[in-house]
Design a protein around this nucleic acid. Structure first.
Lengths: 233, 233
DNA sequence: AGGTACCGGATTGCTCAACAATCCTGCAAT
DNA sequence: ATTGCAGGATTGTTGAGCAATCCGGTACCT
């Protein structure tokens, strides 16, 4: 043991140096980005050959990326036919909200990430949404809304659940792209987020959780109402 | 529309016929099974060439399977070094319990899968565990325990959360394999499951959820206590 | 002895080319 | 209109190949 100080210092260095992500991951990142931002619409076929040529990676690497995207539910494989950008069904939408209903209120009420600053932080996000609203910035509202729910999820203090919810929110964006119009859809929820924050500011996490449950139940209905039926796509 | 009766009948056929899983999935299944049942211990290196030869699939297929297992956290990639059976750290264990703490009580208290039969069904599982106990069947107890928590999770009525928890329970088994001895570890929790069921039988889902939270908090400590420090493995 | 530099073998990361199986399209025959 | 079928395109999977990286050992230096 030549140098005790050294080995102590080394312990502080992150165990895995920041290696560059693998080719498959970079391909998955590129595709994921295009899927969630709507450049690649639901149902689009992801041809191996085309993507291979477009991104400059071999077909095998593309296939590895597909495995990732499929496990994230952003894409779906139809055996011997190909991989397609996922098209969430009404059932999938229900599942998304069932998941959120299970996780978010629980994180809000019992999450150990709670601190005295939490209400103020959430308030901050609501304010951001409000200024976006005043500027008619639909995308900004949507973004702030997502941030709000991610912040709530983070109270749960679980990497795993964070990751789950990241996936959920990504798929939510897919769903939004399926709606007849996202325009004006998020506004009503500003008020409800505000109410949740108000309850938190009063220190009533339980009531806030209940309010959030109501929110999610309503939102599911709204989304289903505004989602085009399969016949129209 | 030549035949209305026919098209109605076809509607009942499952949309995707049961295709045989791909080679990569079968490889992943085989490896996953060996990992969770302990045949492949934590830290074991999964050499592409070896597995390729052993299972009779090409290296490329093995790599696709790896992507899956890694996304399930049952294996970990160390760039340029290889893929290894995951070795959960204390931090990972904490994360597992944080996840369960977020999901299980919530499912128990608010899950829409609840019915009047639910308490009886859970009671049934507890009884199964008890007979396993009387026969000194450690594995049986562990299995019944898992079943108990899966049943609770299912109350949440979300495929996605079910899938998440399937992964959580799989990783839990990895953790159990890391303990000095699984012998006698699960017994104490029989009593606590029983208490949860008793509360449910009284119709008090809220109290049952609280009891479950206490259970999980204690269990985490117990697991950490019985888990060998990294130095010993 | 203790530390460093270097070398060769093994393994990974990724590509490329090939081929059977399957699916899709269009067209011809009924 | 429906069926049958040929041709072309794409997927599923394999095998070989090669650069980059890592590992283990050995020789070298002090």
């Amino acid at each position: 043991m030549p140098n005790r100080v050294l080995s102590e210092a080394l312990r502080l260095i992150p165990h895995r140096l920041p290696t560059q992500p693998s080719a498959a991951e970079r391909v998955a990142d590129a595709l994921r980005e295009q899927i969630v931002d709507g450049s690649l619409r639901s149902g689009t076929r992801l041809t191996e050959e085309t993507i291979s040529a477009a991104l400059g990676f071999s077909r095998n690497t593309i296939r590895e990326a597909f495995v990732l995207l499929i496990s994230e539910r952003l894409a779906a494989r139809e055996p011997n036919r190909g991989v397609f950008v996922a098209t969430p069904t009404a059932d999938d939408i229900h599942d998304l909200y069932a998941t959120r209903l299970l996780v978010e209120p629980s994180a809000l009420e019992y999450g150990s990430g709670w601190s005295d600053d939490t209400p103020a932080e959430l308030r901050q996000i609501v304010e951001t949404a409000r200024t976006a609203q005043e500027q008619g910035d639909t995308a900004g509202i949507a973004q702030a809304n997502q941030d709000f729910h991610r912040a709530i999820t983070r109270l749960g203090q679980s990497r795993r659940v964070d990751h789950l919810m990241a996936g959920v929110l990504a798929e939510m964006r897919l769903v939004f792209h399926l709606m007849d119009s996202e325009e004006g859809f998020h506004e009503p929820y500003l008020e409800r987020n505000d109410e949740i924050v108000r309850l938190l500011e009063r220190g009533d996490r339980s009531a806030a959780a209940a309010s959030l449950r109501g929110y999610l139940l309503d939102a599911e209905q709204q989304v289903l109402r505004h989602t085009l039926p399969p016949s129209a796509r």
